[in-house]
Amino acid sequence: MPEEHVASDVQIAGLALAARNLQFSYAPGFSLWPGRATGFHAIKDVSLELKSGETLGLVGESGCGKSTLASLLCGDRQPTSGEITLFGEPFKSLMKPNRRGLAKHLQVISQDTMGALDPRRSVGHQIVETLAIHGIGYPASRLDRAAETFMSVSLPASALQKFPHQLSGGQRQRVAIARALVVEPKILLCDEPVSALDVSVQAQVLNLLLDLQRARGLSLLFISHDVRVVRHVSHRVAIMEAGRIVETGATEDVFANPTHPYTAKLLSAVPRGRRGRAKQATAMLETL
C-alpha cells in the first residue's frame, strides 16, 4: 500500500454537516449480551464537521459505534441529546413529510445492497419510484433521468430492466449509488460501501465515488473499519473508539503522527509487507 493518499482534488469551503455533543443511549432493557438486560451508551459526546466538497473518513473497529452514529446523522434514530445541522439548518427542520426535505441534502449508501433493494422489482422501477416519491420530474421523463444516472455510474441503460439478483455485487452497489444520486443530494453518507466487495471491485467503486465527487462537488462521510481505504479517499479523518471520537485531523497528519494511543494501536494493526490477499489489495488500490 503506497503511503500517499489520493483524496479527490475538489474545492473545500463552508460547512455541509455538523454534529455537536451527540449522545445516544439504548433504552433500559436493551443488551448486547444474552441475559444482561441493561441500557447501553452507544454514542458519547460526539462532535464532528464535514466541509462542503471534502471526504471525512470515520474509522474504528467493529462495534465502536460507527453505524449507530450514521443512523443518527441520516435520521433513522433520534439522539438522546445534542444537535445536528445540515448547511447551517437544524436537522429537525429538514425532517419534513416523508423526509423529502432531508433527502435533497443527504443520501445513504450502505454495505447491504441486497437488503437495500427490493428483490421483487426491477432496479429501473425502483429508481423511477424514488423520483416519483420526491416529486422530481414528470412521469414521461423519469425513465430518461434514470437512464442518464445509470450512465453516470457506468451502468448501461439496459440494466434498468434487471432485478437485483441478476446483477453482480459491484453492479448492485452502482445501482445503490445511482438511486442516491438521482435526487441530486449534496452529501453522501457511505457506510462501509465496499467492504462486501472483491478487492478489484472495491477499487472500481472507490474510483467511481471520487469521480462523482469531483464532477458534482459532493461531500462524503466515508465510514469504514478499513484503515487503508480510509487513508486513500479522505481529506480528513476521525478516529472512533467505544462511542467517542478520540482524534481528528488532516489524514496524513493523523496517520503519520497519531496523538492518541488508540489511533496508534489501530494503525499498528494494518498488515504490512504480507503476500497474498494483502499484496493483491495493495495492487488494486494503487490504481486509485
Rank of each mutant, 00 (worst) to 15 (best):
T259R: 15
N257T: 09
L17Y: 00
I127Y: 00
G115P: 09
K44F: 04
R214N: 09
A215V: 05
A256I: 01
K186I: 02
L220T: 02
L155N: 03
R174W: 05
I12K: 14
E4G: 01
K66L: 11
P119T: 07
G101A: 06
K265S: 14
G170P: 03
H235A: 01
A238I: 00
L288H: 01
G124A: 07
Q280F: 08
A13K: 14
I223V: 15
Q173A: 06
D112N: 15
I177W: 04
Q11S: 13
R275F: 03
E3C: 00
I84F: 07
W33I: 14
V153G: 03
L72F: 09
Q166F: 08
E286W: 08
V227W: 00
T259G: 11
Q107W: 07
V182T: 06
V108E: 01
S122A: 08
E184L: 06
I12L: 10
V6F: 13
E247R: 07
K186P: 04
S195V: 12
E4C: 02
K92P: 01
P97Q: 12
G14S: 10
T80M: 11
G39I: 02
H232V: 05
R231W: 02
V123Y: 04
V246E: 11
A242I: 03
M284N: 12
S268H: 11
E286F: 09
I187L: 12
T149Q: 14
M240N: 04
I43D: 03
L188V: 01
N207A: 12
Y262P: 05
